[in-house]
Structures are given as C-alpha cells and as structure tokens.
Amino acid sequence: MDVSGELSIRGLTVDYGGAGGVRALQALDLEVEPGSFHAILGPSGCGKSTLIKVLAGLIPRTAGEARLPGDGSVAYVPQGNSCFPWLRAEENVAYGLKLRGVGRRERAERARDLLKSLGLEQFSRAFPGQLSEGMRQRVAIARAFAVEAPLLLMDEPLSALDFQTKIAVQAELVDLWRDRRCTVLYVTHDIDEALTLADRVSVLSARPGRVALTAEVPFARPRHQAGLREQPGYAAAFRKLYEAIEG
C-alpha cells in the first residue's frame, strides 16, 4: 500500500441545500502528516461529520480542494451503528475487499486476522444483531482497516461505548494503525480520547466550521486514557483544547 503523501485541505467550504442553505464548513484549511493519527475536536454541529463525509466522497464540496494521500482511496467508519445487519461479522469486515474484487479465500483470511486482533475470533459467524455495541464497533473498525486504504476516516467510532470497553478498543485501534502506518483522521468530542490517541489535534470552531487551532500532543506512547491525567503537562494541554472548543 502506498501511504505516502499528506492529506491536504485548502479553503474547503460546504453548504447543505444549495444557495441559501446551511453553511457547514467555511474555507477550512488542514494539513495532516502522512502516516499520522490526527484527531478533530469541536462543538456539536460544527461540521465534523460533514468534513469526514466530504473526504469520503459522500457529499459534494461547494468550494476548495482536498488532496488525499496515496491512491486517493479511503476507508470510513461512520458515526453510529454502521455494521450491515444482514452480513455476518466476517462478511462485514470483508465487504470492502469484495467490492475491490479480492478473492474469497484471501477475504476470509484477512477478515479472520482482523477479527482476531480485535478479540472477536469467536464471533466471526455472528450477525451484528447478536453482538454487543462494543463488538459491533470493533467490526466496523475492522471493516475499515481491511481495505488497507492510505486514509482512514473515523467519525466518533467509540463514543457510544462504556469507559472500560472504550479503553480496550483504543489500544487495539492504535496497534492496528501503528502496524499499517496509514493516515487517520479521527473525529471525537472527547478531549481525553483525542489526547490518548492522536499525534496532533485540530479544533473546529462552531458552525460554520474552520480550524481554530492545531496542537501537538506532547505525551509519549504507549498512552492510556485512564492514566492520562497523571502525565505532566496534561492540565495545560486539556485547558488549551477546552478553551478552543468553547471559542
């Protein structure tokens, strides 16, 4: 997989409903380093999901440009329950591979490997309706990693999970990312989660969204959200992001 090249967004403006509609993003600029984990924070309704969907090619942009890393293909974890209820866990994971014409044998193998690294090897034949919320989000994450796209777009994939489960999936997620070195753009509304996962964090302003601040996360890896508050510099990092979100 070619993961080279950065994600570069220039002057991105997105209006919903044409002229006179809602302006969700306004001349947004963002640079994301190749292979880095970049978190997006921002108040509810500021346009975080909109940004992700534009990059996923789901909604048109009104103005501006986005250059995507590698071959321009993306993987996407939507905000919410996105596993296909009619496909078994392993078929969900293999969905993108099937669209790309990967053969049955290799699909099954890659799906099983991914489910294994997320602790779901026992559940590969289960339907999403038979899984817990945490397991379903793991499947959605596995489905995104399976296609080995150079850019991985994740929209609050863990926000519905309880703290314990969230911590466990965070660790699995970071392992998968470090293994593959793809670029990750990760939306969250949780400052601590951003500080746990990301190399850099950008804060969007209230709607119409634009980048209000981009900050380096100063903590060494491996990190752990439960122990984050004991890190020197945590209070300052948290405050800086919190104030930026408040505007």
Partner: peptide, 9 residues
Amino acid sequence: IFVDAARAF
C-alpha cells in the same frame, strides 16, 4: 448510514 458506508467503500 448503510448507504454511506457502502458508497465510501
């Protein structure tokens, strides 16, 4: 959400 997921892939 299912339509979006499929189209993104």
